[in-house]
Each structure stands twice: as C-alpha cells, then as structure tokens.
Design a protein around this nucleic acid. Structure first.
Lengths: 253, 253
DNA sequence: CGCCCTTTTGAAGAAAATCAAGGGCAGTGG
DNA sequence: CCACTGCCCTTGATTTTCTTCAAAAGGGCG
C-alpha cells in the first residue's frame, strides 16, 4: 500500500464489491492488499477526461463525481453520479477511450489501482471479475431507469433522490434519513435534463408535498417509504443487498 | 452444431465480436464452433422476460428486438434496439435477473449458447471476454447518447436513424443508403420518449428537410453525411470499425 | 460590508402532450 | 370484385409542461 495516510484504505471499494458478490476472506484480503496510489482531485477538475484511456482503475474513496457530456449547443448533461465506493476507468481494459468525461463534483479522494494488477487479481479470483461485471450492469440499469423516468419531472427528481439514498445507505429499508447531498440545483437539473429554473419549481413541489426537505446541501427524508411511493421507486435494479440477497446460487467456495 | 438448417451459423455474432477486438483464426474458429440451439421467436413475443435469469446467451441472427420497461402509468419506454449480430442475456453470468424485458419487434431467429460453454470459451481465449466487455460498454455508451439527446426531438430522431445506419452498416463512411427499418412509428416514439403523434410531426419535419425518406418500412438516406450533420452524429461512441481502428495496442498473439 | 455563487420568483413563449377524428392500405371474406 | 376490418399514419385544436429571459433575494466568506 502506498497511500500517504494509513487510515485511508480501499474499504469503500471492497464494500461495494462485497455487495454484489459473496467474497471469501482470501478474496477480501486480496482486494484490501491491492497497491494503490492515492490522489486528491479538487472540485471542478476532471477525474478522467473525455477520450482518455487510462491505465488505472479509479476507486472513489471519498467525494462525489459526475459523468457528463456536452451537447452541440454547449449545454451539459450529467449521465451519472459516482459516489464513494464506486469506481471508474474500467473501460480501459478494452483499450477503448472514454466516451464522456468524469468530473469531481466535490473534492475527491481517489485510489488509482493499475489495470494490470486488477487483471492479475481477476485471473486469480474470477468471482471478482464477476463483481466488476455486476457493477457495470448496475450502471447500465441506472441509465435505463433515467431514460424510463424522463417523462415526468416530479417523479424523476423523487426517483433520483431515492437512488442517492439507496446507493449511500444500501440495505436500509425504512425510517427517516438525513444526509449530505453535495450537489447544487444546477447539477440536479443537468442530471435530469431540466433547466435549473424548472428544477427549482419541481423541487419546491416535492418540498410542499412533505416527502423531503433540502436546504444547505442537507437532504432530509422524514419517511423514506413515502418518498419511494411518490417516486414509484423499486430498488431492485440497483442489486443492493437485501435480507434475501445472495441465496444459495453463489458459490462461496 | 445443432441448428436445424446448416446455412444458419453464428456468423453475425462472430462478425460483431470481430468488430470490437482483433481475433485470430483459432479464436474465430472456436466461436464458429460453439454449440447452439436455434429458436424462432415470433413478433411481439418476449425473447427474455423481465426478471428472468436465463442460462443462455441469446445471439440474434436475424430480426430486430427491443429492450423495454413499463412506466407506472402503463406506458412503454424502449431503452434499446437489438439488431442482428447483437446478443443479450449475458447479465445472467452474474446470476442477476434482467431488470427489463426484451421483445421481438419482428420475427427473430436466435441462437442460444449455454453460458457454461461461453465461460469455457472465455477462459480459453481471454480476448473474447474482452470483446464481451467491449460490447457492454457500447450498450452503455448508446444509453448515454440517448440521455444526452433527449432534449431535442428533431436531433434525437435523426440521431437514432444514424445509429441504426451505423450499426447495420458499420465502417461505411459516405454515400446514400436504403434499408429496411422494421419498426413502426409507435416503436420510434416509445424509444424517443415522445407520443406517436408528436413523433409523426417530427418525422415529417425530417422528411421535409430532405435528409431522409421513410415509407413502407424502407428508410432512404440520400446522403448519410447530411443526416449525420443534422443529427450532430459522431459514430465513435459505437466503437465501430474504421480504417484507423485496432492499431498496435491489441495483442493478436 | 461587499462580492460571488446559488436559489427563488415572475411573465412570456416554445415544445410536446392530449383529445379527437379522418385517411390509406393490406388482408379477409362475402 | 367490392365491402369490411384492422392497423398504422396523418391532421387539427387545445392544454400542459417546460424553457427562456429577466431580475431579485439569500447566504457564505473575504
């Protein structure tokens, strides 16, 4: 490990993979033992620029990043959020350039793991390769949900907030929530394909309906199931851990 | 090979993979030699239902299929088209159920290849595993483009037609085109997230601008580059073969 | 305090949905 | 041969949603 702070580890990345497949102690240990280079990326700077083919996997340990592309008219569309535990850059195993850019939405702490090392790890533990596949499938499922929702601003916004909640607090099923939402209304608008003005009005409708409060970048959800109902949110597409996840089919060696 | 017609082979599937990575004769031969079960799926029937975890890879040899989900209000959103050479069902390698359904938009001829056999193939020829990854990345890139375009109906429709052209005729760069477009306006509307009525009007604007003609399910493009210009289409996201593709980086053994 | 960034409000205009009805065309059956 | 039927495409009128343009109000921070 080459991190400049011994407290910083790949734990969030490991947890993310462990949500998707059952890992043995050996496998977990191998992931924890990966060498990585720790980088801090300040807000507004690209993690990976469009067209890049990096030779590292970027595991985000802290902070939020966003995937985005620019339209012909210069406006931006955010096509996905990257939260702690998520990774990006895996496209490079295909020697293919990234078709979009990934920008730090907040200051980020990121672990760079060489793809060569990752390939060795996958060769030794195929289940880790399957976890990476699984994570990609979740990314794809999220994109499909965004397309599906795109017809109704109110529901889409509620759904996106549910997505944040589910990704930040996987496995929790009911009750209230309060957490940092380190993005501003312009980010949300760019993610939903709305103008900031319209997003603001939709957000106020959501607040008025009592299912959320959002101020000073703190999102408060009095009852997560009320919000989910408003959003018609079904978390199964995220493949998050639930009490009934990973039954007997997964071979745990 | 267990097909009931010796003329029918995995050739379209092989071609698709060969677009994404450089394959040796051995590797191509191994793909051609896969055992498969040939199935015919009539129009309107599901290829894979939502929630299914099949034990086969479905390689579409002929016909068009569509990925779709239903909204809470019962309306449909098509989130992707599956054309000859494409495959689906690979999510099952993660033992995860499909989060959407795949329906035959026309009568389809599909080769079912067992996932076990596929895994053996990938174990023997890792480059084939990378081709499958690459194909998934292209699926993802297409979803991102759909999200990116979703703000402008005219451009989105033009872009979708460019996507069809590029996927059906990869590598061709200029000139005119004429090919079957076996979907109706309702399908296009469901794919673009528009109502059929509005799609019809946008389609007429496209026709009036002279870049396409579409009647009786035959799409005519007098000049593909004119259409691409109208759509702001850049085919690189599809990773289709171009004269400069696959330079020295790919290890061809 | 004054500045910048972000959120909020208002009013007018454009884009798309909705509702409703008519038209073309292929296939079917008398 | 012609009428009938079903499917798809097309058109018109109206309403809703979202954008655009413009400006004001907070809030954090030097």
């Amino acid at each position: 490990m080459t991190g400049y702070d011994d407290d910083i580890s790949l734990q969030p990345f490991l947890q993310r993979l462990a949500q998707l497949v059952a890992l043995t102690e050996d496998e977990s240990e191998a992931i924890r033992g990966l060498e990585f280079e720790l980088v801090s990326i300040p807000r507004h700077r690209n993690v990976i620029a469009k067209g890049e083919t990096p030779s590292y996997l970027y595991a985000v340990l802290d902070g939020w990043a966003g995937r985005y592309s620019l339209r012909p008219d210069g406006t931006r569309r955010i096509t996905g959020f990257v939260v702690p535990g998520d990774f990006c850059g895996i496209h490079a195993v295909c020697h293919s350039p990234l078709d979009h850019a990934i920008v730090a939405l907040t200051d980020c702490v990121i672990a760079k793991v060489s793809l060569g090392q990752l390939e060795q790890l996958v060769a030794r533990f195929p289940v880790i390769g399957r976890a990476l596949w699984h994570a990609k499938l979740v990314d794809e499922a999220i994109l499909r949900i965004w397309l599906l929702n795109s017809s109704d601003a109110f529901r889409t916004l509620a759904h996106l907030l549910c997505e944040f909640e589910a990704r930040l607090h996987p496995g929790e099923t009911s009750g209230s929530r309060q957490f940092q939402l380190p993005v501003n209304q312009e980010h949300l608008a760019d993610a939903l394909g709305l103008t900031p003005v319209h997003l603001n009005r939709v957000l106020q409708r959501l607040r008025a309906s009592g299912v959320i409060d959002l101020s000073r970048k703190v999102l408060t959800i009095p009852d997560i199931n009320e919000l989910r109902k408003a959003a018609h949110f079904d978390c199964s597409y995220l493949h998050a851990p639930t009490p009934l996840q990973h039954p007997v089919t997964e071979n745990t060696l």
